[in-house]
Design a protein around this nucleic acid. Sequence first.
DNA 1: CGGATAGTTGGTCATTCGTTCAAGATGTCT
DNA 2: AGACATCTTGAACGAATGACCAACTATCCG
Lengths: 215, 215
Amino acid sequence: MSNYVDALHREDFVPRISAAQRRSDFVNAAIEVIATYGIDGATTRRIADQAQANLAMLHYCYDSKEDLFADVYEFVAGRYRDVVEDSDPHSTLVETARRTLRGIMECYLESPSFTAATLDLISWARRQHGDRGMAVYDQALKSVRAALRGASADHAVEPETIDQIAYVIATLADGFALNWLTYEDRSAATEQMAITESVLQSWLAVRLGSTPATV
Amino acid sequence: MSNYVDALHREDFVPRISAAQRRSDFVNAAIEVIATYGIDGATTRRIADQAQANLAMLHYCYDSKEDLFADVYEFVAGRYRDVVEDSDPHSTLVETARRTLRGIMECYLESPSFTAATLDLISWARRQHGDRGMAVYDQALKSVRAALRGASADHAVEPETIDQIAYVIATLADGFALNWLTYEDRSAATEQMAITESVLQSWLAVRLGSTPATV
DNA sequence: CGGATAGTTGGTCATTCGTTCAAGATGTCT
DNA sequence: AGACATCTTGAACGAATGACCAACTATCCG
């Protein structure tokens, strides 16, 4: 104990951080770096810098850069799940669909860096592993389907219909993301968010048999 | 002349190729390599190999890798223009919109490598130059708008409506592309193409005032 | 205290990258 | 024929990358 106090007074004293905490730091740092410099520019040195850690520390916590990225995938997938679950008001199927789409688009609009990082990650993973990119995308779709199913518990909705709605939501959200990332025009994106919502509404009305819940 | 004939008989004779032809070869090779290895893996050496040229030749034709990519952007933008123009049957606005969306999706479905390369290029360009990624996207949107305007020459359609329709087409096409690239499931993508089309149809009917041209 | 465990670090390795150069080969003029 | 512009090439450069190691230090436990 007295050693600890003595150590505190030394100039070059460096308190230690658990490997678990360090791994978490590296994941967050990696997302930040990927968002800023792209998947190409996300080098081990930059990630270590961002995490305020030594380069060798990264390989002390992770055997390879690829192992670190695996944890990053989990983080991204988890964030999608959170966003979808948070925008689940347990009301109509139509309303749930609309809120889910809006929730995802608002998430994109709020943090374009996260959006860009995610798109890069999926694209990169598809080439590298083929199935990991699919895993992230698939898990997000699964969350959407679960939210839709929860909202249509009383009505009898065919699972195929749920799948189609989930696909349309994902398609609209991704298309919106690509446009928003390209133009980086927040006011234009806000207008397009409304248009995108109305597209979903129109199709749902036709698909589910003209049940316009709210305008 | 006799020199030429004599040269033909030598084993190590290497006929020459004009710099213009070489540049064209490099552009095509770059697209192929980007589609296969991604924007990260598109190294100067791989591109030179694909073009069956020496590495130094690439820098004889282009000052830098970036200069080569500038030509690649032009090629991609041109291809979008061709696809949109080819699917312009000069009929109804609704019909033109549907055919344009279908044309783009079919182009994506036909050559996933071109699709992947394009998405990577736009994403990469956004980070590198900010405006070049926008230029490609914008030029494609412009082609779509022109096609829509041409189809609505007799009707009086507000330019804002044209812009919105073009945005929805681009959004649906890009969202479809991301899904198709991720799952690489051709049969599923074919079904989703139909769904995506019906989404556009539903929205257009509402937006233009219930004018269901075809089911 | 003293040893064991776990976190920390600077320096180094081979590899790959984009780029450059000098020298050679091929055409095309006069 | 010889001069000149235009391709062509092997080899090399410095910079950056992912990975690794041996030495060092904080923390914990008996």
